[in-house]
Nucleic acid binder design. Structure first.
Lengths: 250, 250
DNA sequence: CGAGGTCTTGACGTGCTTCAAGTGCTGTGG
DNA sequence: CCACAGCACTTGAAGCACGTCAAGACCTCG
């Protein structure tokens, strides 16, 4: 249990360091954060739309989604959080807005008090900047999702999501861009892409038939990264990683 | 000229104060910011996709859009900035990502050095938090755009944009929710909503025919706010205004 | 007075949705 | 160890929202 949460904090720190320099003291302060571990079953909501919580939610294992819900009950996933991501970092400065959080797959989370995070940000300006910078990553990804959903057809849209998650999981050390876990049902994939489950299914089939990706056991295997990225018109700059993720071989 | 920029800083300060408390000293520091005024003609790009700049861009007058460009040249607008908004506040902590900025209408901007803003954030922690909080508003709006484009049909989507801009312009003191400037062509409206200009035209017509809105001279007149908000399923919480914007009469 | 952008309209095509049914898997209780 | 319930996935057929193409009207400004 403690092992898990330490590993998660380490991963969170890695994510911050990927974009922001932090002194040893600051790094130690991050790793000293405490929270309690909460396990959530797949398809269980963690925070209901509009609900306010006093703690942020660090993903230790599994997959979490932020979603918006329409009045007819259909959902749109607006961001995905993989292990090492802090779901509610922005709520340190802003109370929750009307979004919900749900466990896409069986998930382990570490709940960390907003007040603890806020204290850290006040005490260490470097951490405040790192946190701020980390939330801009979310903005950038959200903006990309807008153009993805607004201007690309299903096939390209799905390819783009695969590329994004591939790079992010690789960066988090959970998989490689060519083979990574994506524990979502086709239904949830539809919620993320703004498509119906039926069309997700058919679109996925075309990607498979063209030999671009294979899926098995909730993992995505990318057979030809370059071609997939072409279909997606994928430009990784929006992920705001200072190390060029392009560098790695395709 | 100086008058203009003072008014813009005042408006920017008002926007910050709407969500963050600032001491008198901090407020004065914001108002003391200096920049140079740049006028931009309609349809002129301010920052090209991928370009980096050393200054943020405060909208004094007009309308600015952030956009993403597909390889075939089509654009998707990912955020709109009205007078008093700072376009590139997040680039104080993150270099530009691949987005472009364009003047939707004839626009006056005030360019403020990132370094000046960063200094302010370092010197006054209250300002750092206010800036951070301000960027979370952008995230929240972007997330709402995802669900808007992903899960709503054209009519509802357009209604939602009108509601959003109505509330934001009202808050900025530029108009009321029932009558506000929206200096966009139907083409640009399509770029914001993920629709073709032709379909924007037809959709707008249905809203007009149903007596919900009227447009003239680049202004939107909302005839029946309540009904428009219903069509949009508009819930203003995502704008993160501490004062309840609902309070005002419909 | 002409050029070019903006808006409008019509006809037609298509990507995606909807509805409906059926298959296969997995886990659970008798 | 089998029966069955429930969910995920798959497939087909039909419909609709929106895109595409094309042309014409209107407006503004040089």
């Amino acid at each position: 249990m403690i092992r898990n949460s330490d590993a998660a904090l380490q991963r969170f720190l890695g994510r911050l360091l990927c974009r922001s320099p932090l002194t040893d003291t600051e790094q130690a302060a991050i790793l000293d954060l405490r929270g309690h571990v909460v396990r959530v079953a797949a398809h269980r909501d963690i925070v209901l739309p509009g609900e306010e919580t006093g703690s942020a939610c660090l993903v230790v294992d599994g997959l979490v989604a932020r979603f918006d819900q329409m009045s007819n009950g259909t959902r749109q996933i607006t961001s995905l959080y993989i292990p090492g991501d802090m779901c509610d970092l922005h709520s340190v400065v802003s109370p929750t807005a009307g979004w919900g959080l749900t466990a896409v797959a069986p998930t382990v989370t570490l709940r960390i008090l907003h007040s603890d995070l806020r204290e850290l940000a006040i005490k260490y300006p470097g951490i405040a900047f790192a946190f701020w910078r980390d939330t801009t990553v979310e903005t950038s990804i959200a903006a990309k999702w807008v153009s993805n959903v607004g201007r690309r057809e299903a096939r390209s849209r799905m390819a783009h999501l695969f590329c994004e998650i591939g790079i992010r999981t690789e960066r988090a050390g959970i998989g490689t861009r060519n083979d990574f876990p994506l524990p979502m049902t086709q239904n949830q994939l539809g919620d993320a892409l703004g498509l119906t489950p039926v069309h997700v299914n058919r679109t996925l089939q075309t990607l498979r038939q063209d030999g671009l990706v294979a899926t098995e056991n909730r993992r995505v295997h990318v057979a030809r990264w370059k071609e997939l990225a072409d279909v997606a018109e994928f430009d990784p700059r929006f992920l705001l990683m200072t190390e060029r993720p392009d560098a790695v071989a395709a």
